[in-house]
């Protein structure tokens, strides 16, 4: 079993590859259809952010365990411009989202745990995980 794998995000088609990887791993962990769809939507959103705002980056998928729960960790990293105002991008209704429920607040909702590290001019790393309950 491949416990750790990643997809480089350079073109829009890589978003689909990242989704595919995420779905395979989610299935492998044992997530149901709804959670699979949630995880892939979160991956889509993260990969799309890389493609649109950083140009290129990487989506890494790891199977994790927490106690006796299994789960999935998605790490999106890029060396793009970084995010100047994290609080603002985490706000509902900000920019791209605007009532469509997407954006980073959407990712946070779809997953259980969400962390964001960003340095201006150096890049952004977002980790989001979901456990199988």
């Amino acid at each position: 079993m491949n416990l750790r794998s990643s997809v480089d995000i350079i073109t829009e088609w890589d978003i689909v590859a990242a989704r595919q990887l995420g779905r395979n791993e989610a299935k492998d962990v044992g997530f149901g259809t709804v959670d699979q769809a949630r995880i892939t939507t979160a991956i889509s959103e993260l990969a799309r952010n890389i493609y649109l705002y950083a140009g290129k980056g990487k989506i890494e998928i790891r199977q994790i365990t927490d106690g006796n729960l299994k789960g999935l960790l998605v790490i999106a990293s890029d060396k793009g411009p970084g995010i100047a105002d994290v609080r603002k991008v985490m706000e509902d209704g900000y920019t791209t989202s605007g009532g469509l429920g997407a954006g980073l607040p959407g990712v946070k909702r779809l997953m259980d745990d969400f962390k964001i590290e960003t340095v201006l001019g150096e890049g952004t790393t977002i980790s989001a995980s979901k456990l199988l309950r």
């Binding site: 939507t41 429920g101 997407a102 959407g106």
Partner: peptide, 18 residues
């Protein structure tokens, strides 16, 4: 259909927080 509805679910949650 489940895939299509995921975003409706998100939009609904966002709407509720707003």
């Amino acid at each position: 259909l489940i895939e299509v509805m995921i975003r409706y679910g998100l939009a609904l949650k966002e709407h509720q927080t707003l």
